[in-house]
């Protein structure tokens, strides 16, 4: 729409800050490394241990934070546009919960090694698919609860999302009681939101899912713009409303599911980031792209905090995003004109 250039400026600024945050993420950690050594290690130079720490541990983790944060924010942005509700979010709608159930079932069935310890690209690709099935099951149940006369009702959708979320929590607790104690501990830590399972394979797989989600959502930007007028009026503007809604819901589920499969349930990113981005742009194309960058930035910064605040102990990154997100969201709500 008219606010094109400010969106571009914001995009460049966000990229700059994100690059700085990524660098900080590579520098900070339980083993202190000199900036020069880190940069050399990135290029494969220096002693084997430093290279391994930087290239096998810190870089995948930082990149995973970028992709998980971006995917969650993108998913939230799509759901908000879809439902015409700024409170929509993959977590709130039960999509994340469903994905977590799918991941756990997949993991118990032996797809991928185990949550929190992915091995190989194949295993890395399989677990998000299990998560996606779980997310789709959740979406289906949410949709069943919300459909009225073959259409999805916006208000009911949020309500049935809350119910499905509660159900997913119950199923998760039920599944957890099957594993042995040490396995359950890993599961719980993953479920609370953690990027500790980052591997190059996971980064590669998630980038495929993120690209797919973006490719599905970006062509819908104009439909999202028109949906601001309500579904009926959007239809009179030539928008295939039901097709757009289904595609967007599918893409949002896929993104959230992939994020959950690798990093557990991280709340607030999908809620907070699009909400904040809406203050600088009203065009949905810019909103989707800026949300991805903003989500990436939020999660990279949160992960740095999670690793370094009480080092060498590590806090759940989901706790950090909630601690940052809840007060900020309250402020945003109060500042709303």
């Amino acid at each position: 729409m008219t606010s094109r250039r400010p969106a571009l400026v914001w995009g460049i600024a966000l990229l700059g800050v994100l690059a700085a945050a990524l660098l900080a993420s590579l520098l900070l950690g339980s083993v202190s490394l000199a900036p020069g050594a880190v940069l050399r290690a990135l290029l494969g130079d220096g002693d084997a241990q430093t290279v391994s720490i930087v290239r096998d541990l810190r870089l995948p983790r930082a990149l995973l934070a970028v992709l998980v944060g971006g995917a969650l924010a993108l998913s939230g942005a799509a759901l908000q546009a879809l439902l015409g509700n700024p409170l929509a979010d993959p977590y709130l709608l039960g999509v994340s919960g469903g994905a977590a159930c799918g991941t756990l079932v997949g993991s118990l069935l032996g797809l991928g090694a185990s949550v929190g310890a992915h091995s190989g690209v194949l295993g890395s690709l399989a677990l998000p698919l299990a998560a996606f099935l779980g997310a789709l099951a959740a979406v289906l149940v949410v949709g069943l609860g919300a459909s009225a006369g073959g259409r999805l009702d916006r208000g009911r959708l949020l309500l049935s999302g809350v119910v499905v979320n509660a159900l997913a929590s119950a199923v998760l607790l039920f599944l957890l009681s099957f594993g042995d104690a040490s396995r359950s501990r890993t599961f719980v830590f993953w479920m609370l939101g953690s990027l500790a399972g980052a591997t190059p394979g996971a980064v590669l797989a998630l980038s495929v899912y993120a690209a797919l989600g973006l490719a599905l959502l970006l062509p819908l930007a104009r439909a999202f713009d028109a949906l601001t007028l309500g579904e009926e009026t959007a239809a009179t503007l030539g928008i295939r409303v039901e097709t757009a809604k289904r595609t967007a819901y599918l893409a949002a589920s896929l993104l959230a599911a992939a994020a959950v499969a690798y990093a557990g349930i991280i709340g607030f990113v999908g809620l907070l980031v699009p909400h904040a981005v809406r203050r600088v742009t009203r065009s949905h194309r810019a909103l989707l792209l800026l949300s991805f960058l903003g989500g990436a930035l939020l999660l990279v910064v949160s992960d740095v905090a999670a690793r370094s605040l009480f080092a060498p102990a590590e806090i759940s990154v989901g706790a950090i995003t909630a601690l940052l997100g809840a007060p900020a969201f309250l402020l945003l709500l109060r500042a709303r004109p």
Binding site: M1, T2, S3, G84, N85, P86, R222, D225, A226, L227, T228, L229, G230, E232, T233, L237, G238, I239, R278, R282, S283, P337
Partner: peptide, 21 residues
Amino acid sequence: PQGFEPLFPILARDLVLLGRT
């Protein structure tokens, strides 16, 4: 339509541009 409430904040010019969709 009758009685429209915008779902999100939107400037008049941007809203009118939606008519060009």
